[in-house]
Amino acid sequence: MLEVLAYLFEQFYNADGLPDMSQLAKKLSLAGFEGEDIHDALTWLSELKQIDVAPYKLLDANEFGFRSLHPMELERLSEDAAIFMHSLDATRILSAGERELVLDRLWREPDGEVALERIKLIVLMVIWQKRDALTNLLIEELLFGREGFALH
Rank of each mutant, 00 (worst) to 15 (best):
E47T: 00
G35Y: 06
L48T: 03
H152W: 02
M125C: 01
L94M: 12
V102M: 10
A90T: 08
S46P: 01
A61I: 14
A25Q: 13
K49M: 01
E73M: 14
A133S: 07
L88R: 06
P110C: 14
R99W: 13
D37C: 03
N136D: 15
A41N: 09
L143G: 09
E113Y: 10
P19C: 14
Q11T: 08
E141N: 11
L138K: 04
R67P: 01
V4Y: 00
R76Q: 13
V53S: 14
K120C: 08
L28A: 01
S78W: 06
A31G: 06
E98L: 03
E36N: 05
F64E: 01
K49D: 01
F149T: 05
H86F: 10
L2D: 07
Q129G: 10
E98F: 04
K130P: 04
E140M: 14
R118A: 14
S87F: 07
F64C: 02
M21V: 13
N14P: 02
L69W: 05
L30G: 06
V114K: 13
D40Y: 04
L24R: 04
L134I: 03
L143Y: 11
M1A: 08
D80R: 13
W128K: 00
L151Q: 07
G148S: 05
F144K: 13
P71K: 04
G35S: 04
Q129I: 06
A61H: 09
D89I: 15
L116D: 02
L74K: 15
L94G: 04
S46H: 05
Q50M: 12
Y56S: 09
E47K: 13
L59V: 03
L138S: 07
S29C: 00
I83F: 01
Y56T: 08
W128Y: 10
E79H: 06
K26Y: 06
D89P: 06
A133R: 14
Y7M: 09
L59H: 12
E117H: 10
I83G: 03
E75R: 12
K27G: 07
I83T: 10
L103K: 07
A31L: 05
L59E: 07
E63D: 10
L69H: 05
